[in-house]
Design a protein around this nucleic acid. Structure first.
Lengths: 207, 207, 207, 207
DNA sequence: CATGAATGAGGCTTCATTCAT
DNA sequence: GATGAATGAAGCCTCATTCAT
């Protein structure tokens, strides 16, 4: 008469793991700490995850999913010109991330994990997919602006999206390094300039 | 002094450490491996570095210095319009980084190290300083463009520089994740749009 | 609790540690040796003791407790004149110690530990307390002899007790150095002379 | 044309070693520290001593010799009754030792060394010899008192000497453990009682 | 299913000793 | 003879993982 596996137990562990990994980093975090944070026994974790690395990957997946969910909500709810929607997207994403700046250390850990064997490819692929998703969303916004004749620049929307998302990523890094860094202001300036560029023709000879 | 002791022994160790850390990550790298890569005994490393972490920080410092050196060379050698010089800067930096893409994993490790105790502040401060340096160089290029009436946008040069540098950083990350990612093309598009924006007035009502 | 875990595991480890430390000395003893002697895994020791030094201190405490227990038994069971009881105490203590002469090396190690950082004060305080205990027991025996007019010498019982106990200690040392040393005979002579002195007035002019 | 070995260099090293060993204990002392204290290079020590243990033994020998030298001076210079000479001996020895109480930690180390292989027998034999020497000196003082009819007790002088010396040893230990311990007072009481006992017949039936 | 006691591989670090200069 | 850079053996300790209850 085994008690049915509590479906929330796994989630509970991941929550505890996110907090602990974010605070201390992957290597420095011990399974015992995660177990204690989750209020369960050490061995129980191994009932739900094959290994420490497995648990790590699970926390990664959850964060990725949460972010994508956030992006979907934004792109569905905001209306108006492409410029407006892009700005809204930027602000929402950055605000959300800023509100969870403490998680950024965890993202850094994930990136770092892509460098270290043996799960390198696993993390790398997941990251790549997540970026591709974000890119697609942003690029489609830009493409809409072009279709509506709001943007005249003849550029590859995907490339602009890449750079834009990249700048968000990097702004977060700088905020992580320096709590006084003006993320939203810098982002505003960047997107202002970028949108101004998109609204005009880019004369080849000018560059 | 007894055996003259290779005056470059310390440098030799750092070189070996860079290669090893980059390949396997900080945690996964053992002192024994670094020693072997350097062709010396395990104990010798401790003649030059107090601890594994100290060695790690030394590799970090060296890479930072090398990059700054590279930037200085570029900003001194390239002439022409601000747009041209910015593009040259972007291309040079990115090309240099691309050529050492394998080191990017190491940078990820460094970032990650800023999250993990106990050297957190040490790395964080060094990173912050390095970014400030880069920002200053790029911002001064933008400022020159404004002085020469090449750029009309009324924006904070430092903020644009932040976003620009951030995008380089993030493009490298994506290249690291995906070897097929078009770093230079994306950068070109991004800087084209950005420069186009800088050359025009940014009408407040337009955003 | 999972495996019930031998409730005496900690004691078992201490026993093994006593034997190993006594035989090889503190520095020369490795945790691996103690673990093997205890028939357990290396890591298990760290479930019960924070460090090698902690284990060492635990062995020390146990030996101290055992000796005090021995003294209590003697002082409670022997009856008769103070002289008789003091002699009985001396003989019992020395016999007990002689029977465990192999432990004396361990006591030397403890003494030595009081000299070496960083646990110096810990051991020193414990030793001091143990000596104070023994002193109190012996001094009270002498004091009883004075109350009963068996001893006429006007001396500080505590000082005599100190010297007496000290002589036992030192006799053990000499036995440890020289297996042929006549501990009990020497002690007998010493206590005979000492008791004879206690039974007479000590004329100041005579000294 | 090798410079002749500085005959004082060896002595200089031993002096430095005594200070260092006494302060930090044998294990905790590194050859590098001794070398630095002696103001010479690490390697130089190995020109004069085969190993760290050899150096340790040399410091031991020197301390033993110094103490014996001290005893000889006392036994030659003091005149008067046997009681007086014994008291003088006790006071001189204890005062000398007290003045160098910091060296006592080193003696403890030596004792401890007799417990730990592999030089066990070497130290043990030297200690045994040193005690035999001291015993002989003290016993001869007692024997003189018997010959002069100052002492009437029919006891073995060597046994009394053993106990007496042992008590000195142990008093030092207690002083080492407790800086407030009254060494000289306790010794005075002890020797008073002991001498009183020696001056009287010890009636067998009395014990 | 849950637990946590037990385990042992493996890492960092120390330091006595060597030996080229 | 003097030196100290180089070495590597060896030890303490951590912690992911297992498994008996």
């Amino acid at each position: 008469m085994a008690r049915p596996s509590d479906p929330n137990k796994k989630k509970k562990i991941v929550i505890a793991a996110i907090a602990t990994f974010a605070q201390k980093g992957y290597s420095a975090t011990t399974i015992a700490e995660v177990a204690e944070a989750a209020g369960i026994g050490k061995g129980t974790i191994y009932e739900y995850f094959r290994s420490k690395e497995d648990l790590f990957f699970a926390t990664f997946e959850r964060l990725i999913l949460d972010t994508e969910h956030e992006m979907d909500k934004v792109s569905e709810s905001v209306v108006g010109s492409a410029s407006l929607r892009l700005e809204a997207m930027a602000n929402t994403i950055l605000s959300t991330w800023l509100a969870n700046l403490n998680l950024y250390g965890l993202v850094l850990e994930f990136w770092s994990a892509t460098a270290a064997a043996p799960s390198r490819d696993r993390f790398r692929a997941a990251f790549k997919a997540a970026y591709a998703d974000m890119r697609a969303v942003v690029a489609s916004l830009i493409r809409e602006g072009m279709k509506d004749d709001e943007f005249h620049a003849d550029v590859d929307p995907v490339k602009v999206a890449s750079a834009l998302i990249g700048s968000w990523d990097a702004l977060m890094l700088q905020a992580w390094l320096d709590p006084d860094f003006d993320v939203l202001g810098t982002s505003q300036t960047h997107i202002d300039v970028l949108l101004a560029g998109l609204r005009h023709n880019i004369v080849a000879g000018e560059t």
